[in-house]
C-alpha cells in the first residue's frame, strides 16, 4: 500500500527496440536460411548495418538510458556484477533497471563491434570479389566474425534468461516497449 513507487513505466524506447529486433532478425536470417551468395544476404546485411549506425547516433544524442554514458564499458563493474549474480545473496536492486547492467553492457559493445566487423568485411567482399587478395582475406574474416557474432548472440540470450530468472524481471518483455514490471493495482 505504499503509494510511492517511482519506477519509470518503460525501460527501452522504440529506437532501441526496433534496432535491436531488426538486427536480431537480419543476423538470424543471414546465418540460417538466406544463401550467402544471394542479393538478399547483402540487403539484410546493409539493413543490419543501418540499424547499428542508427543505434550509434542514438547512443550519443538519444534518450538518457540509451546513451553510451549510461552504460560505460567497465571490466571491474562487470566482474562485481558477475560475482553478485552468482553469490547466493542475490543482487540488491537499486541500480538495476536504469540501463544495461555492467555485464550486459560489455556484451552489447562486443556485439556492436562484431556487427561492424561482419558488415565491413561483407562490404569489402562485395566490392572486391572473392578472387582478389583483399576479397580472400575479407571472406575469411567475414566467416570467423559471423560465427563469433552468433556465438555471442547465443551467450547474450543465455545471459538475459539467467538475469530474468535471478531478478524476477522479464527482460525480454522490457525489450518490447510494453508496460513493464508487476501490474499496478493491488
Amino acid at each position: 500500500m505504499d503509494g510511492s513507487r517511482p519506477v519509470p513505466l518503460r525501460l527501452w524506447d522504440p529506437v532501441v527496440c526496433i534496432t535491436h529486433w531488426t538486427v536480431a532478425v537480419c543476423v538470424l536470417l543471414n546465418f540460417t536460411v538466406v544463401s550467402e551468395h544471394s542479393e538478399l544476404h547483402e540487403w539484410l546485411g546493409y539493413v543490419a548495418l543501418a540499424m547499428v549506425v542508427l543505434r550509434m547516433i542514438w547512443g550519443v544524442v538519444g534518450a538518457r538510458r540509451a546513451r553510451f554514458s549510461s552504460f560505460p564499458p567497465s571490466l571491474t563493474a562487470a566482474r562485481d556484477r558477475a560475482r553478485t549474480m552468482l553469490s547466493p545473496g542475490r543482487h540488491g536492486h537499486g541500480e538495476a533497471n536504469r540501463s544495461h547492467n555492467p555485464l550486459g553492457a560489455l556484451m552489447v559493445y562486443g556485439l556492436w563491434g562484431m556487427l561492424f566487423a561482419v558488415a565491413g568485411t561483407g562490404i569489402l567482399l562485395e566490392n572486391f570479389g572473392e578472387a582478389s587478395q583483399i576479397g580472400e582475406v575479407a571472406e575469411e574474416v567475414h566467416e570467423v566474425t559471423a560465427n563469433l557474432l552468433v556465438l555471442m548472440a547465443a551467450l547474450h540470450v543465455g545471459g538475459v534468461l539467467l538475469e530474468s530468472r535471478l531478478s524476477g524481471i522479464n527482460l525480454i518483455r522490457q525489450m518490447t516497449w510494453s508496460r513493464r514490471g508487476k501490474s499496478g493495482p493491488v
Binding site: 526496433i18 534496432t19 548495418l49 549506425v53 562490404i123
Partner: peptide, 21 residues
Amino acid sequence: LAAVLVLQSVCAVFFVGDAIR
C-alpha cells in the same frame, strides 16, 4: 518518428554503400 529514423538510416547506408561502390 522512430519509423522515419529507421527508414532514413537504411536509405543512408544504402546510399553511402552505393556511392563507395
